[in-house]
Amino acid sequence: MSSRHFRLGFIIFLTPVLLWLLTLIVIPHIDLLIASFQAENDQGKLVFSLENYRNFFTDSVYWYTFVRTAFYSILVTVITFLITFPLAFYITKIASKRLGGFLSMLLLLPFWVGELVSIYGWMILLRESGVINYILQGVGLIHKPLPLLYNDFSMVLGLVYMSMLFMVVPLISALESLDDSLIEAASDLGASKFTIFTRIVIPYAAPGITSGAIVVFMLVLGDYLSPDLLGGKNSLWFTEQIYNEFIASFNWNQGAAFGFLLLLLSTVIVWLGLRLSHQRLDKAVGA
């Protein structure tokens, strides 16, 4: 194999990859940053300006939405963990191998069907004329329909629902490699269930927990559908602000600043998660 031949092959492989990363990832994000520092002056020309960021810090709605989005994203991540951890433990450690395999396969289905369809399902279930209210009234538990849809409860429910898979998969793969005899030994030596969980299971699964938490947090932070369709008019999610600036107000520079702030928040949290758990990004996202 001549070295000239080899270089040619190398360039043929490198070019599309470079094109992809430069034109669709690097340049657009630089553009986003530049656009966020521009605003129209009195003559309608785009000039350098801090106005977009000033708006963010002075208008309390933006601030509030940002903090609220971050807070709820953390809350959803924690709830998702609390629900999926016992399930991952059941699938890997309690159920028989066959049942566990079947159960973990079932987990994937709602994910493939897509967020929009599941959310639509929740709307049908939760609204005032919805299935849950119909059943509750039918059995006589309530006399007036409960306002289950279009509030923070339904929004969090939707976000948890769409996040579960991304938490449970890394948890399952972390727990799968945990040797059962460690748990047996601890139990033989008199450790309580609580001790076994806090001293053996949780520390062992820590890398899986961080992976799941990072992915879930990022997805929830950047989600648009659940807050918009399940949260109702007062959902105040930061992606909705971005959407409003881009599509409704057509103020792209303001939207770019919001976008950049969201990206910053997501990057900082992901970075923190990786640092705290001593992981590399590629390992954490499942490579």
Partner: peptide, 22 residues
């Protein structure tokens, strides 16, 4: 390589608006 896996941790909305801008 880091750049190539970065899109996994960039929110989809951000990818959308930055590509739209460019």
């Amino acid at each position: 390589y880091f750049l190539a896996i970065a899109p996994l941790v960039i929110p989809g909305v951000i990818l959308g608006i930055s590509i739209l801008l460019t």
